[in-house]
Design a protein around this nucleic acid. Structure first.
Lengths: 236, 236
DNA sequence: TGGGATTTGTTCGTATGTATT
DNA sequence: GAATACATACGAACAAATCCC
């Protein structure tokens, strides 16, 4: 027996899988903002007990992706415009720190990694709108990851997730269009060690994202059926 | 019947109470860094089931105050020096944002509120070392609260908590001595709307705090008995 | 307004996995 | 190296609160 080898997917805890399934469902907008999340039906649909679902919900609540009202159940968060501004303000500060930390310390390999990611963004731009938003967000997460500052990474990840939710609520239908070029400029500035320029670019980029969170384009789906997809992929 | 009136403390959920009891116990250094936190004994000591304790532990883990190793139990976090630097770097960025948000928007009443708090810090300085550290941290939380940015408030609160833990691990015995005067200068700059000066002061202040996290002064206590105090105050 | 159905909050028992002797 | 002891992971049932008719 080799205990380090994870022959079974259940090596990672079930509540983790449920957490990820729900998170992805929310970020993919398969679960619309404001949608109710009854513990029973989710557990039934995903084949786990309510305890597991509860844990996942508590975690999501901590990250601001769902709202957890006592005795009244959980639902996907509906950030107000005010909340949205708060989130982008904090992103502004944190992602400037990311750039400030990264400047002058990136290897050519890391630069290439960033460029490859933007390439993928570009590819997805035309085809899949949902994955395009997803990839645009992941670019920011990737930058944060390169700082090797876990605290910073956690906060940026959280805020990027919530930003996705905000975009789905208030954003224009085809919002991530121009993000790609902005990401490319940022990489260029990082590559040439232009601190001030890179910071300014990031500031403007976040400003641009914030501005794009303006017009509304909503879409409705029925809740429980869509979960099947995510359940399968998380091994549930 | 007046349902809005909370005659009983149990209006707030049990796991909340346990969470707060444990958090305070950790921040007061009643539970030393690295101390084991078995679900059973805590639950027994506090008169609640393991499930409740589990929820509280999960939440504390999410905030970085405890470490939650799968199948190996929970213990009070022992942030490494590297982690400490990460935390203070993020604090730097976020608390600069706090100042930037607050500048020019504070009422005289709020200024007085801040001054009153520093007064309390000054009073506690000589008498109680533990509550002195606590109050110094709460000053930063108070500032964040005044921004009315909930996201910012949550992160600052979290980081201040973790900073307390770091100070208890690596800090000098009598570290918060000079903090009071630095807080006063900060208030003065805020009062006179000097944006650049206030931001610089905050930067230097966090730098100073970071520097003070250097020498070590540890203390040991036995774990379960101290919980009684916190249990009582949280209504357990 | 009241009662029943539904959903959440909590407890406890069983199973599983890890460390120790 | 195997068996024991211990602590966590999970699940089913109970109790309390809310919502709807």
């Amino acid at each position: 027996m080799v205990p380090t080898l994870r022959n079974k997917k259940s090596a990672i805890s079930k509540s983790d899988a449920v957490y990820r399934a729900l998170k992805r469902a929310i970020l993919d907008q398969a679960l619309a903002a404001g949608a109710k999340l009854p513990e029973d039906s989710i557990g039934e649909r995903l084949g786990v007990s309510r305890t597991i679902v509860r844990q996942a919900l508590a975690r999501l609540s901590g990250e601001g992706l769902i709202e957890l009202r006592p005795h009244k159940g959980a639902c996907v968060a509906q950030p107000s415009l005010e909340e949205a501004h708060h989130i982008f303000a904090v992103r502004q500060a944190l992602e400037t720190l990311v750039i400030d930390t990264l400047i002058g310390k990136l290897t050519q390999q890391q630069i290439r990694q960033l460029e490859a990611h933007v390439e993928a963004e570009d590819m997805a731009r035309a085809s899949n709108a949902s994955s395009s938003i997803q990839l645009a967000g992941e670019f920011h997460v990737l930058l944060a990851k390169l700082t090797e500052n876990d605290v910073l990474l956690r906060y940026v990840t959280e805020l990027v997730s919530r930003s996705s939710l905000i975009l789905s609520l208030y954003g224009r239908p085809h919002s991530p269009d121009c993000a790609v070029s902005e990401h490319r400029e940022l990489i260029a500035a990082l590559d040439s060690n232009e601190r001030e320029k890179a910071c300014a670019l990031m500031r403007h980029h976040i400003d641009a994202i914030t501005t794009r969170a303006l017009l509304k384009g909503s879409s409705e789906n029925d809740l429980p059926d869509v979960l099947a997809t995510y359940a399968r992929e998380e091994g549930l």
